[in-house]
Amino acid sequence: MENLFDLTGKVAVVTGASSGIGADAALAYAKAGADVALLARRLEKLNEVKAAIESTGRKAIAVVCDVTKEESVKAAMETVLSTFGHIDILLNNAGIAVRGGVDSMSEEDWNKSFDINVKGIFLTSKYVVPHMKERGYGKIVNIASVNAVVADKHDTFIRHSYNASKSAVLGLTKGMAASYAKHGITVNAIGPALFESEMTAETLFKSEQFLNAYNAANPAGRPGNKGELNGTILYLSCDTSSYVQGQFIIVDGGGALV
């Protein structure tokens, strides 16, 4: 049977690859046949993911990168290209969720949300898209959030800058998709709901009240499990989705339906 998710010979770049969704996706890419460049700020954590990928027989490099700093991103992409020679897939996963509403959060926290969640995608894409255009091929997947289109009144989950910045990711995704389709580049976004990660483990997953309310409201009755985003990520990263452009796929157990 044909492997519709085959990534043999491909090179994937994953930002925010040191833990959580990014680390899971990087390993999924490797298991599908890709070599992987792991980008994040914590080298020790990246090396753990690198070792896991190398145990599958694929190649991986760990590159320290701050996606909010242009020189850091530029240097990282130069390292990736000098190592692998090409980039086929860019998974823009680095993100942050700062708590607070507009009546309580600081300007610094507001800016931090947009710097990481939106500017980070701009900068990584800035240094990958020209290479993809030259080759006439590329797959860009932006991790947004179901909270780009669905808000939550629960006090534990008030994150107005998160709502706004993840909505901006959708606009950026559509703009890039429309502009770069003629160059053989697809650009799509994914909207996860609640998945356990470093970002959520110390806040949402420690609040029994919030989890009970979340589970009661969600048709699936639970948060997402480890690895349940990988199928969607692989689909949008492989040639099976070659005619899928500018889309937003929500992975939330049906929560956006109610």
Rank of each mutant, 00 (worst) to 15 (best):
T8N: 14
G9L: 01
K10R: 13
A12W: 06
V13Q: 01
V14I: 03
G20R: 07
A25G: 02
A26W: 10
Y29V: 02
A30D: 12
G33I: 06
L38G: 05
L39M: 07
L46A: 15
E48T: 13
I53K: 03
S55N: 11
G57T: 08
C65N: 14
E70H: 07
N92P: 10
I96M: 00
R99N: 08
G100W: 02
G101L: 03
D103C: 07
E108T: 05
E108N: 06
S113C: 10
D115L: 07
D115P: 03
V128T: 14
M132T: 04
R135I: 06
R135L: 00
G136Q: 06
V141L: 13
N142Y: 13
D152V: 13
D155N: 04
I158A: 13
R159Q: 15
S165W: 01
S167Y: 00
L172N: 09
L172I: 04
G175S: 15
I185M: 02
P192L: 00
L194G: 08
F195Y: 15
T200P: 14
L204N: 13
F205V: 01
R222Q: 14
N225S: 07
N225D: 07
G231F: 01
Y235E: 05
G246D: 00
F248D: 13
V251A: 11
G254I: 11
